[in-house]
Design a protein around this nucleic acid. Structure first.
Lengths: 333, 333
DNA sequence: CTGTTAGCGCCTTCAT
DNA sequence: ATGAAGGCGCTAACAG
């Protein structure tokens, strides 16, 4: 049953021409006699011939595929970026090849290596890979765009301005007269988490220098937001605002607050990061980053480079936007 | 700069052996002298050699990639399925190649064709493609698994039991003494929408035969849920329950109800379909389908077939589960 | 155990 | 305008 499809040679035989002519006809070259072209097309149609992309890639050294390496598809964050990439890639006539990259450098390198020879370029998102690991893993000769990853100089990359985003949250809360702000951080070592935490610390030092900043480590999941609240209670920390490292943890925070019948935003204001759909529904103040757009831009940048342009080896910063909602309305406190 | 990577021949030269030996050594064949293997590995390492997957595929006629064709990555529905596929595919040592399929049959066929020669098998999700269109587009000789798509006999596929899911919702509401149930449907022609609508109609005929069923067409997006409520009001329809075709539309329905200060679930109960994360947060009763698991199973089935097994040309039905929440609590009405 | 050779399917000079 | 032939990088017989 597994009848192997027709090849270019079958078409050539059927049309009584050489394979070269078939190739030329199929690829719309000009120097082909209309009659020949017609015969070739007819033969191809009748045989149900479809060019073998793999062979084509090998011959042209261009696969028209770009590899995407990321931790996982879990949650809104990555799927939103991938969605943007998918949109652009479709418009450009390319394909997306997905690959999971695990946290440890060895398997990360493995994931990257396994794409050599099947993609023309790479987009890598490795927020939890330590600096250096990524630079070593990336193969030479394959253009790559990095997103929110730690890397050395001389790489094309995008960087969401995490610190500025969190700083905006802190400013917003401080403007309401709140000063005892606690930060629920993502896992230490994750670059996004680290930058956000650093943003919180800097902003606090600048805007509320007399207050001792408090950081609780979470893991970006909802449960850890709730757990953080428990720890805060245990340590007897007083606070009038919680700046969470992402929306999911903010939700965990909110559920605990609601359980304890704490007045939000009266007594405590809460902010998140990412602006996932849930945030809008629950009225959570958050920081929005144009993820899909960043995905599009990453692809555009890469494809432009592949098609003759040059890949600017610079980091492009993606600005974020503070979205104020019910958990910290403008005039509160 | 674009220094072309080392090939198997470079390694052979460096190790002073033939390319065949390099190939054998790299692929862990048994019949290779330990010394040569060592020399080869050393040479490969020093040259930073990474096998060219494309060339390998061509030679082996196996790409270890499976193509996924779907409408878009928008929303939870597809990304959840893709997440499951991604998980399984990683475990099996395969890659996922994404491709968007637009609604019209021509471009759908195009999307499928463009994957010939780059994947070993296909997983296709085309809920809005009319019967026949898909069967024609699918290339012979490439194993394919269809998910929630219209197709002729003799295909391997999965089918979410939409009708049974909606029927469960209707039964649940009827058990509460509600009978004037309105269905907000997805777009006509979409197989999921059609089956759910049909499930509603059958269940109504069976459980509330004296009631005239009411169907309003939406488009699976939130706004259309709100629009449906407007239309219902305009037509003066009386109701005590809204059975939406999916969660997003149910959310639209809920927002209108809340705006009008209608008592939910007292006066009106609402149900959705999909069990997106938001549903849990908003306490929306819904139908859950194990999407990620279905994605995993689709990949497992396909890969098993590719590795020697045979692809059972049958439709496997995915059972759904009624998740009762605040918008239609068990003892209400 | 190892080297030589012939493809996998296609594109592209180089002749004609 | 067309055909013949070499090659993309790798693997799989087939000989030694």
């Amino acid at each position: 049953m597994r009848q192997s499809s027709a090849t270019i040679r079958d078409v050539a035989r059927e049309a009584a021409v050489s394979v070269a002519s078939v190739s030329r006809a199929m690829n719309g070259h000009s120097s082909v006699h209309p009659d020949t072209r017609e015969r070739v097309m007819a033969a191809a149609r009748s045989l149900g011939y479809v060019p073998h992309a793999g062979a084509r890639s090998l011959s042209l050294s261009r696969s028209h595929a770009i590899g995407v390496v990321l931790p996982d598809l879990h949650g809104e964050f990555f799927s939103e970026i991938v969605r943007g990439m998918d949109r652009e890639v479709t418009a450009r006539g390319y394909h997306l090849l997905l690959s999971n990259m695990h946290a440890d450098a060895e398997r990360a390198a493995q994931a990257v290596r396994s794409m050599r020879g099947r993609v023309d370029g790479l987009i890598v998102m490795a927020p939890q890979l330590v600096a250096g690991g990524l630079d070593e893993a990336l193969p030479l000769g394959v253009p790559a765009v990095l997103i929110n990853s730690q890397h050395g100089p001389g790489r094309a990359s995008f960087h969401i301005d995490n610190a500025a985003g969190i700083a905006a949250s802190v400013e917003h809360l401080v403007a309401q007269g709140r000063r005892r702000l606690v930060h629920v951080s993502g896992p230490f070592g994750n670059i996004d988490a680290d930058e956000r935490r650093q943003g919180y610390l800097s902003a606090m030092a600048r805007l509320a220098p007399e207050v001792e900043p408090v950081v609780i480590e979470g893991d970006f999941h909802e449960d850890s937001g709730a757990a953080a609240m428990a720890e805060i209670a245990e340590r007897g920390v007083r606070y009038d605002g919680i700046v969470a490292g992402n929306d999911m943890m903010a939700l965990g925070v909110l559920s605990v607050l609601r359980e304890r019948r704490v007045d939000v935003p009266g007594a405590v204001a809460v902010t998140g990061f990412d602006d996932i759909p849930l945030a809008r529904y629950l009225g959570l103040t958050t920081i929005r980053a144009p993820l899909a757009e960043m995905g599009e831009r990453a692809v555009a940048r890469l494809v432009d480079a592949l098609e003759g342009g040059t890949l600017a080896l610079e980091t492009q910063t993606i600005a974020t936007e503070l979205v104020i909602r019910a958990t910290s309305p403008a005039g509160a406190a």
